[in-house]
Nucleic acid binder design. Structure first.
Lengths: 122, 122
DNA sequence: TACTTCTATAACTAATAGGTTATGGAACAG
DNA sequence: CTGTTCCATAACCTATTAGTTATAGAAGTA
């Protein structure tokens, strides 16, 4: 049984929003959007120590935003963006307070989906 | 110390994501979506002290998510959701990673629309 | 084996966050 | 004025965060 509103996802939302609240971590995610990278590769552009990057990666990992792999000595990090969808979903509750842009995206996707259905039928 | 310039947008994203990382603050925003409320009204349902709520409101205010008014002795809080749009915009860069197939995108859409309907009904 | 590379972890520090109680001030009610 | 209501702020405590340096271990290389 779930209550309406927050509760089940709240804990993960805590972790996701907190992870995104740090500019270095956001930059790491942006870098990872280009492809997986080792700790060393991630640390290089930021001029903070390697242990600091390892810590950031751990925060991202706990939020579910990053997965780690094994490649010889390396432990490459890989982006996992799904938790962002939950964050966006939570914020979508408020979209009527910030205007139509979200609605427009929504409309566009509905139209595209409808076209897909048309193609299936025809 | 910062090495590579994070801009004003980044600073605001820091504040917005950090503000959203607390479940009490998210609950306050959800409450404010129903309309403006005084500090006392906001504090009542949560079992934390009034000064704690005042602090949370200050965090939300600095993130631009809340505005304060004046009504006799009261200082009602009012939702301002625009900064959420910036947060969503930032995350939209990663949309391709949480579903590049239309079916997955459609799943998200269905969830969002379901919430929308809930809001209309509730 | 010995050395180098890559990363994690421990130990420490300084700052911030989230909570408390106490208190004071501003705005109404009498 | 007196008292009450509403709220902000101060002072304080504890836990967490973000960084550091030092070190150890695992894996590849000579």
């Amino acid at each position: 049984m779930e209550q309406v509103g927050y509760g089940n996802q709240a804990q993960n939302l805590d972790a996701v929003f907190a992870a995104l609240a740090d500019p270095t971590r956001r930059a790491l995610l942006t870098r990872l959007a280009e492809g997986e990278a080792s700790v060393g590769e991630l640390a290089a552009p930021f001029q903070i120590s390697q242990p600091a990057v390892s810590k950031h990666l751990k925060v991202l990992e706990k939020a579910g935003l990053v997965e780690r792999g094994i490649d010889e000595q390396r432990r490459p990090a890989r982006l996992k963006a799904e938790p962002m969808a939950e964050a966006v979903e939570w914020m979508s509750y408020f979209k009527r307070f910030w205007g139509d842009s979200f609605d427009q995206l929504d409309d566009l996707l509905v139209k595209l989906k409808a076209q897909q259905e048309e193609n299936k039928d025809g």
